[in-house]
């Protein structure tokens, strides 16, 4: 039995080697594979691009994993994948590993992720929150104790606060809790949670004492029923808008999203095609899946950056 298994495993290893050889051969004919891994936040955009890319080059197999930004960079640094999806820039240690393995890369911004804190339009007191106030409302210790607006700020009304937020499994929830409470997924549990953003919109729109948060893109679709609250990350209250998200003043609830492409992939023409296609389509597709697009000029700048990188590594 053991002998059999051994043969089986060694066969497997051999056939694996063969496969890799075939892949690089096929690469020249525009029908290889493009391996992508990384952040689950960037995943919806990359998935959308891969889906559309299939219509253009059906023979190229694009595969996308969701090991998280850190897991993606680890594989990226070992040269196991062509492109890494990332919701933060590469860390020094991760860059060092890549350098050790002789992997150079280019960082490209593809979209922005921004969260909106929303209140009822009739709410005229809490139009701006400091991060501390938001933390006081949402941290786990607030469960069952912080129930009224005046507990957060004595100047606010002595009325019950009604909280609405996305489901605990969503990336939005992870991001909000990480930015506000300080630990991803750490939050009070007694709020109205729904994966359906329309439920959140209706909840806050129909309740003068409601408060909620979700992706900025969803606010924009419901701007007539809701009001945005400004968030004070230390430099005064800033309301989220495409502008303040892009110029980085709306902190800590906005962040750019990236893809990283490695230099050895520049020998595969389909990877170059794919990245160019990505930067062409990301604007429209990012909006489709709920993120904020860069401006046309910014995409052009990213494309220029990429083309320069291609020329250097041909």
């Amino acid at each position: 039995m053991k002998k059999l298994l051994f043969t089986f495993l060694s066969l497997a290893v051999i056939s694996c080697g063969n496969n890799k050889g075939q892949d690089s051969e096929n690469g020249g004919e525009g029908s290889g594979t493009i391996a992508i891994d990384g952040s689950s936040t960037v995943y919806p955009i990359t998935e959308a691009v891969a889906e559309e890319f299939r219509a253009v080059q059906p023979k190229v197999d694009v595969t996308i994993g969701v090991s998280g930004t850190g897991g993606g960079f680890q594989k990226f640094g070992r040269g196991e994948i062509n492109i890494a999806d990332a919701s933060r820039p590469i860390k020094a240690e991760e860059a060092a590993v890549a350098k050790e393995n002789n992997i150079s890369y280019v960082e490209l911004e593809v979209a922005y992720d921004g969260l909106a804190v929303v209140i009822n339009p009739e709410n005229d007191w809490a139009t701006s929150f400091t991060v501390e106030e938001l933390k006081k409302i949402w941290e786990p210790a607030a469960q069952g104790t912080i129930k009224k607006w005046n507990q957060i700020n004595p100047a606010w009304p002595n009325e019950e606060i009604h909280l609405f937020g996305p489901g605990v499994a969503s990336g939005t929830f992870d991001y909000f809790t990480e930015a506000i409470v300080g630990k991803s997924g750490s939050s009070r549990g007694d709020f109205t949670a729904s994966e359906d953003d329309n439920v959140l919109v209706q909840g806050v729109a129909g309740d003068k004492y409601g408060l909620g948060f979700f992706g900025l893109a969803y606010y924009e679709a419901n701007a007539d029923k809701l009001a945005l609250a400004a968030v004070d990350g230390g430099n005064g209250g800033v309301k989220p808008s495409t502008e303040t998200v892009k110029n980085g003043t709306y902190t800590p609830l906005s962040r750019p999203l990236y893809i990283y492409v490695n230099s050895s992939s520049m020998k595969n023409p389909e990877v170059i095609d794919f990245v160019n296609f990505y930067l062409d389509e990301a604007g429209a597709l990012a909006k489709d899946v709920g993120y904020i697009a860069l401006t046309k000029e910014e995409y052009a700048a990213q494309k220029e950056k990429f083309n320069k990188f291609v020329a250097e590594n041909k």
Partner: peptide, 10 residues
Amino acid sequence: IVIGALAYVP
């Protein structure tokens, strides 16, 4: 997920 199974495979 750890060994690298993918979320999108066409």
